[in-house]
Design a protein around this nucleic acid. Structure first.
Lengths: 130, 130
DNA sequence: TCTATATTTAACTATTTGGTTATTTAACCA
DNA sequence: TGGTTAAATAACCAAATAGTTAAATATAGA
């Protein structure tokens, strides 16, 4: 039931509240109640969000008197960045568009046995009832 | 009910099956059954994963005869990359560690009214029953 | 020791998610 | 036509998520 580390990170980031919390923590260590202030949400709800972030390794919580100062653990985001690396070239360079196109072409041809990879246009769709 | 675009992307990426599908599609357009092959999972399950990826804008589906070739939409990942940008400096440079530390220091001092920001050590915890 | 404050935990609820099998749709081919 | 293949949809289910209120815990301070 424990999600793999990368999934846990993505899941933790898939919530605007949690991303806002991270944005706040990027400015420095903050107590839970300070973090909760901007949100129209109960404290336990915020506490749960923090637990999600903590289990993902994105934040750490300390102890100072009755406060639990939270701090961001930015190295955890490195994992997300590393995952992105593989895809970065696909959007960053036009040159690579060509590469992908050639791959597609190759895949389609080997699958269809020489069938022309023409995209479908209106006149190909005959006998479309309903 | 519709998630904001960035949340939809993170949520879509928070699943190993869907990330594996993306990795496959990075090599080129592929049909649904080809995509499903490596997974111990029914076709409808894969179809649902594809719908999640599609709604997040991470893939697009075409139509070629009875096949629905899927292709990756790498530009969608740019959004994730842009979000990361804000945090990249926090892990990439030691120099910025110092910056954060100063921020933390400042926040703690202004909150505690000059109390020393000493981390708690064992001898401070008195009378900790059970 | 009593009280106030900060935070977490417990218990509950509604919604979403990720899977299943069975059915339907869409297109090809003979 | 009718049969086959590719894929999506429907209906269902169990588990996870995101919220709630109420209670428990930990610490500071009078």
């Amino acid at each position: 039931m424990p999600l793999d580390p990368l999934s846990a990170k993505f899941a933790a980031l898939a919530d605007p509240t949690r991303r806002a919390i991270l944005a706040r923590l990027a400015l420095g260590e903050t107590s839970v109640s300070k973090l909760a202030e901007p949100f129209d949400m109960s404290m336990p709800a915020v506490s749960k969000h923090l637990k999600v972030l903590e289990r993902a390794g994105l934040i750490a919580r300390g102890r100072e008197a009755q406060w639990r100062p939270c701090r961001i653990e930015p190295e955890a985001l490195k994992g997300v960045d590393d995952w992105l690396e593989r895809y970065r070239k696909l959007w960053s360079e036009r040159l690579d568009r060509l590469e992908v196109y050639l791959h597609e072409l190759q895949a389609r041809e080997s699958k269809a046995g020489g069938k022309p990879p023409k995209p479908r246009s209106e006149e190909h769709k005959r006998d479309r009832r309903k």
